[in-house]
Design a protein around this nucleic acid. Structure first.
Length: 415
DNA sequence: CCTCCACCGGAACGTGAGGAGT
DNA sequence: ACTCCTCACGTTCCGGTGGAGG
């Protein structure tokens, strides 16, 4: 009997019970350590069940601090209660990173509210005010409370007028445009300062209620992971150190719960590829470096040429065994690299800024310290995962780097 | 204790690309 | 086609800085 290529993997016993439980989209039965935030939302949104309009809200917090999860969690119960009580409550969630213009957001809302026989609002073509009018009449004909959730709203607002206009429209629905219905806007933002980019008139309408989500700490992340793991992974499938490690690593990344879940999910995957056994901390380490790899590769690939040349100069110095390189040393190498790339070298002032940018992205670390007699300078080191081939990424993404990488460099003598 | 190195980093300005309005 | 505006990227200028070495 010939064996099918997929047999082996299909027949292997999976460590996953329910893979979705470890995904981002999954809404669990409880959200540990977000009780306060939940109660703020519930206290406001309960008005919808009483036939009144809830206030608009803005939720702030770092990525993975539970904003979207809390909102979905609360809205799920709200809709269920509304259905049971016979009051018409509808929630519409829109991610502004994907749907990033006023027109497309309105069209999305309009189509969400359509019944049989309604015209489908095309993805382009109508004037924006006609789309808005459809949204209004569709809300009006079916009296109730409409809750519009605009996730990652900062993306839209940063695009200029677009965000202002949309929010102005949506928030004006409650001020006279709707008679028998209410419309409540919940904005979700990763960026605390995003209202600064907003028209002040919109700001005051949009967020009578602000909720700030603080990042999870390591212990709290464990509480987030445990029930998910129980549901998603086979019994005794995890070494007891796995969850604490995932939690600790994610806590370092600004307490990002998504990161923690990613780590756990990929660890389990790695353990499966390892053919059997349980998930151990080695798998978590593998998962961590894969996540880093997946993040850093596109970042480096998309760096502008000058940035690449600067980064290259840091790396070449380090490859020659130097640590804590100074700005001057980097600049010397950088000038040679520019020559080989056929580029004019930027000023050292500019290169200094570029180094700082690389530091902010997290590819290098640059600390300014005094070297006494030898002046103030940065101490520059790369901070890349071990075994990460940066030069290959640069070579494949930028033809001009080829001659730069192929040249041998004579580095300055150190003092 | 003072000097002085080698750079830091803020501020103001120049330049060219790209978008909006007319 | 035209101006006007904004924005990102770079340059020039310059006061500021912490500690090794005199």
């Amino acid at each position: 009997m010939s064996r099918n290529l997929f047999d082996e993997l299909l027949n292997a016993k999976s460590l996953f019970l329910d893979r979705r439980a470890l995904g981002h989209a999954f809404t669990p039965e409880s959200l540990p350590h977000r009780e306060l935030e939940i109660s703020v939302l519930v206290n406001n949104l309960v008005e919808a069940l009483r036939g009144h309009s809830p206030s608009n809200m803005t939720l702030y917090g770092r990525p993975g601090s539970g904003k979207t999860a809390v909102t979905r969690f609360v809205c799920r119960d709200l809709e269920a209660k509304g259905a049971a009580e016979g009051s018409n409550v509808k929630t519409i969630e829109i991610n502004c990173r994907n749907i990033d213009t006023k027109y497309r957001v309105l069209a999305q809302i309009g189509n969400h509210l359509s019944r049989e026989g309604d015209a489908v609002i095309p993805f382009t073509g109508w004037p924006a005010d006609r789309v808005f009018e459809h949204v209004r009449t569709r809300m009006e004909r079916d009296p109730g409370v409409y809750i519009i959730i605009l996730d990652e709203i900062d993306y839209l607002v940063r695009k200029g007028r677009e965000g202002d206009d949309l929010l102005y429209c949506l928030t004006s629905l409650n001020i006279g445009l709707l008679k028998d219905s209410f419309c409540c806007v919940i904005g979700i933002s990763n960026d605390l300062g995003f209202t600064e980019d907003l028209d002040p008139r919109v700001t005051s309408r949009l967020s009578p209620i602000d909720v700030v989500f603080s990042p999870y700490n390591a212990n709290q992340l464990e509480d987030v992971l445990n029930p998910r793991a129980e549901r998603g992974v086979v019994e005794n499938g995890l070494d007891c150190a796995v969850i604490p490690l995932c939690a600790a690593l994610a806590a370092k990344e600004d307490g990002d719960a998504r990161r923690a879940l990613d780590l756990l999910r990929i660890s389990v995957q790695k353990a499966e590829q390892d053919s059997g056994g349980i998930v151990n901390i080695g798998h978590v380490r593998q998962a961590q470096s894969q996540l880093e790899f997946d993040q850093i590769t596109p970042t480096i690939r998309n760096l502008p040429l000058q940035q690449k040349l600067v980064l290259f100069s840091v790396i070449i110095n380090e490859k020659n065994g130097l640590r804590n390189i100074s700005t001057g040393e980097v600049y010397g190498t950088y000038e040679m690299a520019c020559l080989n790339a056929g580029e004019r070298a930027l000023t050292s002032r500019r290169v200094s800024s570029l180094i700082r940018e690389l530091d902010m992205i997290g590819i290098v670390s640059a600390k300014t310290t005094s070297r006494g007699r030898h002046g103030m300078s940065k101490r520059i080191n790369t901070s890349l995962p071990p075994g990460f081939d940066v030069l290959e990424i640069m070579r494949s993404s930028e033809p001009l780097m080829e001659p730069v990488i192929n040249t041998r460099y004579r580095l300055q003598n150190r003092l």
